[in-house]
Design a protein around this nucleic acid. Sequence first.
DNA 1: GTTTTTCTGTTGCAAAAGCAACAAAATGGT
DNA 2: ACCATTTTGTTGCTTTTGCAACAGAAAAAC
Lengths: 210, 210
Amino acid sequence: MILNFNVENFVKDFEKYCHKVKKKEFAKNEVITTYIEKRNQFCILVNGNADLVRYDFNGNRTIIEHFSKNDIFGEVFYTVTTNNELLVEARNKCEVLIYSYNDIHNKCKNNCKFHQILSEHLPELILNKVTDLNMRVELLTKRSTRDKLLGYFSFLSKRNFNKTIVLPFSLTDLADYLSVDRSAMMREIRLLKEDGLIEKNGNIITLLYK
Amino acid sequence: MILNFNVENFVKDFEKYCHKVKKKEFAKNEVITTYIEKRNQFCILVNGNADLVRYDFNGNRTIIEHFSKNDIFGEVFYTVTTNNELLVEARNKCEVLIYSYNDIHNKCKNNCKFHQILSEHLPELILNKVTDLNMRVELLTKRSTRDKLLGYFSFLSKRNFNKTIVLPFSLTDLADYLSVDRSAMMREIRLLKEDGLIEKNGNIITLLYK
DNA sequence: GTTTTTCTGTTGCAAAAGCAACAAAATGGT
DNA sequence: ACCATTTTGTTGCTTTTGCAACAGAAAAAC
């Protein structure tokens, strides 16, 4: 996420600002929060990697969003419309700032700086989510696994101004993110290599076209 | 879209508020705006139906969003990440309020009421887009055409508190919205009927399960 | 009210994606 | 350094989806 709002600085001295905000640690695979109970949590991932994940009734797992350092998540950014479980799971050891709010739009009773800064930047933060979501819809509406892969690779490539990209998660997770079968995706990756469109070395991919 | 912000009243007296805002009419199939050129348009659909549509290189058409009376669209709500054409097309005769802004977050030089109200409600409006987008991701990540159909039907059913729903567009457009092949979708609808899960009469569908 | 166009519904066939299962490689934990 | 677990890569087979083509129904245009 690219922001004018400097999350890093904001997070650094959070204790100065508001004592209602807690920093918590999570081990790998721990559930950081769920989007089903209405606990109104707003979270900042200070360190580590986490995924917003949905499990459906058929046992399929879908990665809705992937979070890394300084990413922001919580129920403000996801008005739940689903019946399925929505969990944020720690991919590895995570440090998270958690703030439970009643109404994020209204000022904190203490009128503290944390909330002041937060509500000032909320539109910007939400607009960033919109950008991510639009990208995701863009990807998911592609008709074939091949186009989803190429679409995702070229998104990462453009964002980092580099034909060589490092996948932010495992191939197993990539399949869950693109919402396709893993083995079919592996087959397609092999065909992309055979067609000379990409080179692959572990989770490092180089685009050879254009 | 369900809003606290009363679009209808807001729109009614827009001339009082700001002379920079223009009302335009569009005939069926006319292009209302495109999201490629950076003209920074913010639009309110006063009357009619329109779709945000993408055409990809294979000629596939995807309906990204469907707009009806009082819906709001424009580039503020869609930070473009794509190479493809993104068009808003009038489905039938449309009346649209169009406002081209430099920076919607800053106040209008005239300090007019239009912009005051607009920027007050912008977070709310954007949050509504987020809800729509999350629903869309939810749908698109479903693995089969059947699940996409059932997911969409039950979304409409829940929203209107009714087991009987009226599809907001043609079956051809529904396929473009769910991002599946039309004939395959028709086949699946037939199977849903045969399995006794739905009843169908034109574009009126009744859910028979649960 | 007639013609033209779009939409619906269906089908046979081809292509793509999903499923299940397995071995090898890599990773993580202790 | 070892063992247990997860991930990668592959394959044969099945199921689902997409494509092309067409006829009838409905809607729009004139």
